[in-house]
Design a binder for these strands. Structure first.
Length: 269
DNA sequence: AAAGGGAGCAACCGCACCTTG
DNA sequence: CCAAGGTGCGGTTGCTCCCTT
């Protein structure tokens, strides 16, 4: 049988996109909306694979994309969601407006993973790594766990809200690796979260600002920045209706509502 | 100032799932 | 119901930039 390749390998350009190609793609999508990706390259006059066009659009050209590093709140949300969803980057990205799965995946692999490892926390299981000396971890990782270094991972005390919007489709995969069941944030037995909760009052952490706020009387409370963590159903009603936050979510209305700022940002490409 | 190495990110690849006829 | 096409997703690669020596 065999599947027909998504595009003719011959004559299809690969590698970095030029600004000229970007403009062609943007112009086509603005004019025509996003139709079938396979046909798009020909129609838009691009010598690119349809897949490549889709990727370029979703990961780079989409007007609603945020630029720059993830904020601490976003990073924390990624950690939290990863603890429950695993490497389902698209699902995680769906909870972070303006961020792409690719971006989050990259950020995870290059930043967050290292941070967690440095803290002696397994980035896969989100459990403390104890007594595993041969994993290339710093020798003092146990010390870091006990000293409050690990606290930087942050505490989600707003777990109820987040749990309330857990995607329904991440359960029952049948693989026996249902992350949601044992990484539920409300579960006090979650080693990562309980570890972090125990450390949350350490005033030395550079992440305190967003982890836990301190009232003037010294009592702790959720930092106001925690409010940045979205209560999706309320704050992002549109997103809560979107299983994925992809290009297909932009209909004709979206393109009718493209404003000057978007065009401006594209002009800077 | 130049070379080497590491980090970060954009893009590609291939598989899996969904849709359609 | 099945086969084939279309799309999405996660893993991986490779290029570029920056820092260190």
């Amino acid at each position: 049988m065999g599947r027909q390749p998504c595009c003719d390998k011959l004559g299809v350009k690969k590698g970095p996109w030029t600004s000229e190609e970007d403009k062609k793609l943007i112009n086509f999508i603005i004019t025509n909306g996003q139709c079938c990706w396979r046909a798009l390259p020909k129609l838009a006059g691009l010598r690119r694979c349809g897949k490549s066009c889709r990727l370029r659009w979703t990961n780079y050209l989409r007007p609603d994309l945020k630029r720059g590093l993830l904020s601490q709140a976003e990073e924390q949300l990624v950690i939290d969601l990863h603890s429950r969803l695993g490497n389902r980057w698209s699902k995680i990205a769906a909870r972070l407006p303006g961020r792409t799965d690719n971006e989050i995946k990259n950020h995870w692999n290059t930043h967050i993973k290292k941070k967690l490892l440095k803290m002696g926390i397994d980035p896969i299981t989100h459990e403390p790594i104890i007594g595993k000396e041969d994993q290339g971890l710093p020798n003092d990782h146990d010390h870091m766990i006990n000293s409050g270094e690990a606290k930087r991972v942050a505490v989600i005390s707003a777990s109820d809200e987040i749990n309330s919007c857990s995607p329904p489709d991440h359960v029952g995969s049948g693989s026996g690796t249902d992350e949601s069941s044992h990484h539920d944030l409300t579960d006090v037995h979650d080693p990562l979260m309980s570890c972090l909760s125990a450390l949350e009052n350490d005033p030395t952490s550079s992440w305190d600002l967003f982890l836990v706020g301190h009232d003037e009387d010294g009592s702790t409370k959720n930092n106001t920045n925690m409010n940045v963590l979205p209560i999706w159903d309320e704050s992002f009603p549109l997103l809560s209706d979107c299983e994925d936050f992809g290009v297909h979510d932009f209909g004709i209305d979206f393109f009718n509502n493209i404003d000057g700022n978007m065009i401006e940002s594209w002009n800077h490409l």
